[in-house]
Design a protein around this nucleic acid. Structure first.
Length: 293
DNA sequence: AAAGCCTCCAACCGCGGAGTT
DNA sequence: GAACTCCGCGGTTGGAGGCTT
């Protein structure tokens, strides 16, 4: 993939005449990738500014580091985030905030950049759909009580063998679903212990009273929402949740996604795996269930 | 078919902390 | 301890490709 070379530039960090070379910016070429990989294979990573010079790359050290860590490093995982990984991100973000590198630490093969992008493009998108601040208590509650349980359901239904959520080197402090020595877990939703852990979270679905069951009806969901979404935040909009429970809200969201006019999509392929990757699925599933009543 | 719009993600930028001189 | 350099982090941007009209 050869790219436009027109955006050559100097960086302000160049200080000596020796460094006064044209530095490349923009997408990396295959040749540059090869140079970087070859150099790091032979000499190791680190000392990025020096590495950039010695490798013959007309790039800043920062650019080389980023390219290596986010793309070229052999253990970088490619492809969509699994539901397990998404679950980890949601849980960890609730505890760590926008500390992407810290979150990435618990997801081997995933980079801080990738996680940050996921959060901005998927999670914050849902906040926009719901017209609430992604940092608001209401949205945090939405994630905790609706999104995370749905991911757990997805994990449960997609595999009878609990998947490869990587155990971190050390459990992050305050992580919501903690494995302990007696093989029980403290659940973030109800603060009680269940006989499962983050690596086998399926039991949480049936044991946690705060997680709505998969086949919850509209009236039950309404009760659930009222019971578990405390009205203690100015940005919290009770009416929105009322709409959520009655189904009107799904229409709003679908309008946003420009799908409201195609009911076939709602009951058909829209329920495919790809849709389980974000909150949209929840709304589609609810819409689908409403047809069955 | 094409124009416009949207989404996603690779890459850049600025900043602050750590290390070195 | 001041000045400088390097490194890593989080925020932001720009462009490719897909989708819609």
């Amino acid at each position: 993939m050869e790219t436009d070379m027109s955006f050559l530039s100097k960086t302000s960090s160049s200080s000596s005449s020796d460094d006064d070379i044209e530095l490349r910016r923009g997408p990396w070429t295959i040749e540059e990738d090869n140079l970087l990989v070859h150099y790091i294979t032979n000499h190791g990573e680190g000392r990025w500014n020096m590495l950039a010079k010695h490798a013959g790359l007309k790039r800043t050290g920062k650019s080389c580091r980023l390219r290596w860590l986010n793309y070229l490093k052999p253990d970088v995982k490619r492809g969509n985030l699994t539901p397990q990984e998404q679950l980890m991100i949601l849980e960890l973000h609730s505890k760590l905030g926008n500390r992407w590198s810290k979150i990435a630490h618990y997801l081997p093969g995933r980079t801080d950049n990738e996680i940050k992008n996921y959060w901005r493009t998927r999670v914050q998108k849902q906040a926009r759909n719901l017209k609430i601040d992604a940092n608001s208590a209401a949205f945090q509650e939405m994630i905790r009580y609706l999104w995370i349980p749905r991911l757990l359901q997805k994990i449960q239904s997609s595999s009878s063998v609990m998947p490869s959520i990587q155990s971190p080197q050390s459990t992050p402090q305050g992580f919501n679903i903690e494995k302990n020595s007696t093989n029980t877990s403290r659940c973030s939703s109800c603060s009680s212990s269940h006989s499962s852990n983050i690596y086998n979270s399926t039991n949480i679905m049936s044991e946690c009273p705060k997680i709505p069951p998969r086949d919850i009806g509209d009236s039950d969901l309404n009760s659930f929402v009222k019971a578990h979404f405390p009205v203690d935040d100015n940005s919290y909009d009770v009416d929105n949740y009322g709409q959520l429970a009655t189904g009107n809200y799904y229409n709003d969201v679908m309008d946003y996604d420009q799908m409201s006019g195609d009911q076939n999509k709602l009951t058909g392929d829209v329920l495919s795996d790809s849709f389980w990757s974000n909150m949209d699925e929840f709304f589609y599933q609810k819409q689908d269930m409403s047809h069955c009543r």
